[in-house]
Write a protein that binds this DNA or RNA. Structure first.
Length: 211
DNA sequence: CGTTGGATTGGCT
DNA sequence: GCCAATCCAACGC
């Protein structure tokens, strides 16, 4: 069953709404030779306008320019000397906002993913933002790719996570903007990333029981 | 033009 | 659990 692509209007919302709604949808990558790779999104993070943890916080640069453009495009950047990261642009032109794709459950093309990753255990293929880019051959060439109309990468409707299966935590690896609970993950999913040390995930829509 | 540090990972203790 | 690797964009001089 070929899923429907997510529409432009899906992305034209605050990243904090797009990020949890992406859980359960499917990232599809088609290589130049036609090979199809796919995975179900199980972990995301939101970055919003005015957010000190966002690459766009200090204004537009060559690197982050895609974040300032129209929604539904892929923002790909390089960090830590080795790793590409992929994000989905949200909101509107001039409102820099994005959702970092942090982990996938591999669905299609797992043998090729293992080859690109240099390791084969399913949980090691896409369980981190750098890992999933390596597994799906995402790099600078896909920076700015149109997820609604482009041929190489897009998102399809999947089975959305039910609300009380979504947990939230602070974002991983950021030194500012640590307060907001803008990391969203499917609770107890084995394919999520290593994550951050510290307070445990909260279940969305539930409050901790009083001691 | 030199410096700084990063939306991480993999390997080792 | 802890830490080094590794390169480049951003920024200051």
């Amino acid at each position: 069953m070929a899923g429907r692509r997510l529409s432009r209007s899906f992305y034209r919302r605050p990243a904090v709404e797009v990020a949890p709604d992406l859980l359960g949808s499917v990232l599809v990558r088609v290589l130049p030779d036609g090979l199809r790779l796919a995975g179900r999104i199980v972990e995301t993070e939101a970055y919003e306008p005015g957010d000190p943890a966002s690459h766009a916080f200090r204004g537009k640069t060559q690197r982050n320019a895609v974040m300032f453009g129209p929604p539904g495009h892929l923002y790909v950047y390089f960090t830590y000397g080795n790793h590409w990261m992929s994000n989905v642009v949200a909101r509107r032109v001039g409102e820099p906002s994005a959702v970092l794709l942090r982990a996938l459950e591999p669905l299609e093309g797992t043998a090729e993913m293992a080859s690109f990753r240099g390791r084969g255990r399913p949980m090691d293929l896409c369980s981190g933002p750098g890992k999933l880019c390596q597994a799906l051959a995402i790099d600078r060439r896909l920076d700015g790719a149109d997820l609604v109309r482009g041929p190489a990468v897009w998102l399809e409707e999947g089975t959305p996570a039910v609300p009380n299966a979504i947990a939230t935590t602070g974002r991983v690896g950021v030194s500012v903007g640590v307060e907001p609970q803008w990391r969203f993950l499917v609770r107890s999913d084995p394919f999520v990333s290593r994550g951050r040390p510290g307070p445990p995930a909260k279940v969305r829509g539930w409050s901790a029981p009083k001691p």
